[in-house]
Design a binder for these strands. Structure first.
Lengths: 148, 148
DNA sequence: CCCAAGTGCTAACTGGAGCAAGCACTCAGC
DNA sequence: GCTGAGTGCTTGCTCCAGTTAGCACTTGGG
């Protein structure tokens, strides 16, 4: 299972913030987190908890699940509408035990289907995967004042 | 937004562990967390991160999302959590035959759950809720040995 | 009875999440 | 030029997540 992707998460948050045309302090205030901490998150220095991500998502007016995917808390396959697992978990018409059983069956079906897809793909080979690029450089550098 | 529900999460994890008939140490080992920490989580003393929940879910062979719901990381009334049948039919990750099987199983679970609800309603007469204690009753009491 | 292996837990510890105080810098109004 | 308001960041701190060492207890085999 992938480790939590801190630096790409920070880039994404800063992207969303700048796209919404709000400052770091404004987002920090609406999200209810301190602005130095938000700065550290955006720069990939700190790894926020799911609770902090929920608050940031609320401040950005996006779904928390979007940030979860970037943080590695949720797998990308579960994001968005039509998600079977989310639908099952949210369904009040069945109990927890049934939910677990249904999700297990679904996952095994998915694995079976994926295996079949892999076999089918072997017949049509010659595909290359694109490597992901590094993180963006900082917008400006700061200079510390010499002590008086 | 709900705060993270630590004690109900712990109860659920212990429930799942005991249902799977594994000891605390066995689960801790398969999950890759320390057994005292797992004990603290189950007793509601510590609040685990999403990463730890992922590991525990893997050790229990259940989906991490199930634990996320109990931890309050995911909302049970998730926006994507719409109709289960529609989600299954729309899912490209499984084949048509699997879709029909899954829908059939789901419908039978719903019918079973509905029947149980009907029975439970007949038996219920102004029930009073039992107050939950801080921790579950201990199987044994510990006394610290006086230092030599 | 003894002992090894297993159980769940306590206590002390370390590292990191998250914050408050304060910094240098920019910009606009006076 | 000065000043206030805003910006993003640094530093030091507190508190908690998560681990290690070790405890009492149970159980089964020799």
């Amino acid at each position: 299972m992938a480790t939590l992707k801190v630096s790409s998460l920070g880039d994404y948050i800063r992207e969303q913030r700048e796209s919404a045309q709000v400052s770091l302090r404004q987002l920090a205030k609406s999200a209810g987190v301190s602005n130095p901490y938000l700065s550290q998150i955006e720069r990939g220095i700190k790894k926020p908890s799911a609770e902090i991500l929920q608050q940031i998502a609320r401040g950005l007016r996006i779904s928390a699940e979007t940030l979860y995917v970037h943080a590695g808390i949720l797998d990308e396959r579960h994001e968005g509408g039509g998600d079977v697992v989310a639908a099952v978990l949210a369904d009040p018409a069945i109990g927890d035990r049934h939910k677990r059983v249904l999700v297990d069956i679904y996952e095994s079906f998915r694995a079976e289907h994926a295996a079949k897809e892999a076999v089918a793909k072997k017949a049509t080979r010659s595909r290359t995967r694109k490597a992901t690029g590094p993180v963006a450089t900082k917008p400006h550098t700061t200079t510390r004042r010499t002590s008086s």
